[in-house]
Structure formats: C-alpha cells, structure tokens
Write a protein that binds this DNA or RNA. Structure first.
Length: 437
RNA sequence: CGGGGUGUAGCUCAGCCUGGUAGAGCACCGGCUUUGGGAGCCGGGGGCCGGAGGUUCGAAUCCUCUCGCCCCGACCA
C-alpha cells in the first residue's frame, strides 16, 4: 500500500480527551475516530487490526468444531420478556421502538436469540452437542464509557453458546473453550491468565475470566508468578480428547481478580504472589438450564424423555483487544504490534523522494516484498525524514525498511525491528530474505 | 447515577478575573529553498468563541438555563 494513496490521518499532538495510552495512540495513529461517547468509527489502519484479531478468533473457534453464524444487532423485546431479562437488564440495554410501535432492542448479548434458534431446530439428543458462535457488534449503554475502545458502549464481540445433553457434556464444551481461549490469546502475542470468576446463581467452578496483564489495566489481579511461565503453544490439541488435565494444569496455581481475592486467605506465599493490573479480554461460563428452562429449549433424550439442554456461553472482546494489545505493547514513541495482529508487516520508508536512485531502489524493494507475499506500507510521501520516522514508529509496524541516499551509495538498506530498535544494514536481497523468513 | 472539570481555527492552547467586536504554535493552500529523527523563509485561506435566553451603548468575557465531552467513584465484555 502506498501511503500517499492510503487514508492514515496521524496526529502529532495528543487529543485532549484521550487519557490512557491505547486511546491516545489509536487516535494519533489514525486507527479510530470518536463518533460519540464510547462509539467509534474504524479507519483503515484500525480496521485492519480489528480484522486480524477477528480472524485469529475465528480460526481458533473453528478448530474446536464451533460453527459460525451471524445474528442481528436489533432484537425483538419479546424474547427477552420470555427469559425475564427485559426487566432485569436495566438502562444498560438500549431500547428502541420501531414504526409499528413494537419494542425492540440493540442486543447487549445473544442468549435469548440463540436459544430461540436452537429450540426451533434441535429436537433430539442426537443433534447435540452443538456450539455456535458469531462475531457481531453489541451495544451496552454504559453509564460511563471510558478508555477508548476498551470500554466503549458499542463493541465487537465474539460470543458463542454451547448446547449439551447433560452436565458432563457441558463441562467438556466448557473445557474446549478454556483451552481454545488460551491458544487464541497466545497467538496474538498476549499472556492471558485464566482466573476464577463469580459464577452467579449457578455456582460451581465453571466460570473464568481471561485477563491480560498491563500496567494500565482496569482491575487489580493476583496470581502465582509461575503462571507467567505456562505455555499452550508448544502442544497440539485434540479437542475431542479429555481436556480436563490441561484445564487442571492451568488452574492448579492461584489466580484471582480483585473481587475474588482475599489477602487473608490467599494460599500463595508473599514472595510468589504477583500483584498486577489486568484487562479482561475473555469470559467463559456455564449456566446450565437457566435459559433453556425459561424458554423451553428441550430435546428428547435417549430414554425418550424430554430434558432441557445444558448451556454455556463464551465471550471475547474483539474490539477491546485492539486497545488491550496496545496497552500491553507500546513505548513512548508509539505502538509496537505483535507480528500476528500487525496491520502491515513492513513499513518501507523512502527518505528522499526527489532522488531518482532512491525512488528506483524503493520501487524495486516494494515490488519484491509484495511479490514475496509480504504486506508493505510504503511511505513515498514528500515529507521530511523526521516526520516519516515518527509516523512509522507511531503506527508500530513490526519491521521498517529505511531507504536513503546514504545506504543507496553503499548498496544497502536499513532494516529496523520496531520492538527493539535494532537495525541492520543489508543488501536489498538480504533484507527481503530476512523479512520473508 | 453521585462528585469534579472542560467546551475559542483541523489539533494543542492563550484571551475571560478587570466587557470595547479574536490570537499563537502546529496542520492546510501557493511560491522558493531544503532533505537520515516531526525543516526554513515569504505570502494566503480558515472561527455566528458548544447552543438558547438575559444584563449592557457594546458580551468569547458577566448572569440563567441547556447540550456535548473528559476525569474520580459505584457498575461492567
């Protein structure tokens, strides 16, 4: 992509209403613009990151056997009256009336809709288990939106819902998501720690929040420091196998969010206890037959009797992750994208567009990088070197290739790793080989 | 929803206390010169000072009401 033909409105100065670092950088890097409190438009660079994250989530969901659907943003109020939540939800739910004076709402979540779909179509235990997900915009009319996209009113969320015949099946569905979430966040370059969460009226041990650590996290978290060394990426997972050992391993060490932590009864020795700030990026829980009972979602079991299906629901805050990743990965010059979610792999900087040799070298490099399947953002604007360096550091692409008259004379280009600042002078061929590898 | 703050050019802000008809830097447009970490000079465009009402000869400035946005708390993916 040629930068002069892209839409990347970067800001040199920090907009005054952005306080935390991810919000400031998302505005400055031209990723989003605010439409209203907690509601954002996504500009090209931000959208690319959002799509990257979404795709990783999608692939990891598919790998578990979950199936993607797409439910609407606007839902009829009647379904929520069935479950009893229309009155319970309060002002967080955005209520709308259509032209026929029917009560509608902008969905804050989708248990009612999915339960309605499943109860119509799933009649026999033979049709179970089932796990359906979608990635869709939600709206919760937060009293106080803040932190940019991390606590918006409108947000993109992956949510899915599992349906099983019995508790054992539901538990396996839950474990699948538990393991899947570990893999999903690890692929994004994040260290996410599962923590016991409040389970509400159902009780039991089947609710976990997945929290990434960042100094600016919104809540305090406490965990055994050895948890940071756990790794899920070094093993192949068979989602049909018993996943309980993996879950047991990850839950063997203490980890608790603020509201679940009691310093007096904490089993971890002080020197082993990590106190940090965290951002919740995922939440999974089992809720049994809460909705299937209320909404009459039953199947005929092997014994010929009807039973309410066992359900669980699982959420990942896709748009929140964009901010969360920045919180976890930045420096004082800008964003440092993990490779897996970076909007482009390489930023190519032409330091002197008025120089024929420099242009020719850049054009050649640009064409060859693209031919190698590498996503490149090519800064061929007629701007000062300093401005280009500053913008490229700000938008945080993993690699920079800097082409200027100095290097051209020596037959080299400069390859810089954004995260470390390390640079190497390489021939164009060596540079391409390095970036492709 | 309680408490606090803020609204002046695209952005960051000054001017307000002590009323006299709007400014700076950056950005933008034109020209020339520059060119390895947000360049220089010259010229230019852009603002019903969030909105409504009031006081006054006169309001960005004082008063009242209202709306937006931000921060702290309670609440939350």
């Amino acid at each position: 992509m040629r930068l002069s033909r892209y839409f990347l409105p970067t800001l040199k100065e920090t907009p005054s209403d952005a306080q935390i670092v991810s919000h400031r950088y998302m505005l400055r890097a031209g990723m989003v613009r605010q439409a209203s409190a907690g509601i954002y438009s996504w500009l090209p660079l931000g959208l690319r990151v959002l799509r990257r994250i979404e795709q990783i989530v999608r692939e990891e969901q598919d790998a578990t056997g979950a199936r993607e659907i797409l439910m609407p943003t606007i839902q009829p109020a009647d379904l929520w009256r069935e479950s009893g939540r229309y009155d319970d939800y309060g002002k967080e739910m955005l209520r709308i009336t259509d032209r026929h004076d029917r009560d509608m709402l902008y969905g804050p979540t989708n248990e009612e809709l999915i339960t309605d779909i499943v109860r119509r179509e799933i009649k026999s235990y033979r049709d179970l288990p089932q796990n359906l997900y979608h990635i869709q915009w939600k709206f919760r009319d937060e009293v106080r939106p803040r932190f940019g996209v991390m606590r918006g009113r409108e947000f993109l969320m992956k949510d899915n819902y599992s349906f099983d015949l019995n508790y054992e099946g539901a538990r396996h569905s839950y474990n699948k998501m538990f393991v899947s979430y570990l893999r999903t966040f690890a692929r994004m370059g994040l260290k996410a720690i599962p923590m016991r969460a409040e389970t509400g009226p159902i009780g039991g041990d089947l609710s976990h929040e997945f929290i990434i650590l960042a100094d600016t996290g919104e809540s305090a978290v406490y965990c055994h420091k050895d948890l940071l060394g756990f790794d899920i990426t070094d093993q192949d997972i068979d989602f049909d196998a018993d996943l309980q050992p993996i879950v047991d391993h990850w839950t063997s060490l203490y980890a608790a969010a603020d509201e679940m932590h009691d310093p007096d009864s904490c089993p971890v020795a002080k020197e082993d206890l990590l106190e940090a700030r965290g951002i919740e990026v995922g939440h999974i829980f089992y809720f049994g037959t809460k909705y299937s009972d209320a909404m009459n979602a039953k199947v005929t079991g092997p014994d010929g009797n009807e039973v309410a299906v066992e359900m669980g629901s699982y959420g990942i805050g896709v748009s929140r992750l964009v901010g969360g990743i920045i919180e976890a990965s930045h420096d004082d010059r800008g964003i440092i994208w993990p490779d897996a979610v970076a909007p482009f792999h390489v930023g190519l900087i032409n330091l002197r567009v008025s120089d024929d040799a420099c242009n020719a070298a850049c054009e050649d490099m640009y064409a060859k990088l693209m031919a190698a399947g590498i996503e490149v953002l090519y800064d061929e604007r007629d701007a000062s070197a300093g401005a280009k360096f500053a913008d490229m550091d700000l938008i945080g692409l993993p690699w920079q290739v800097i082409v200027g008259p100095k290097g051209i004379g020596a037959g080299t280009v400069e390859v810089k790793r954004r995260a470390t600042g390390e640079t190497e002078n390489l021939s164009p061929e060596q540079a391409i080989a390095k970036l492709a590898g």
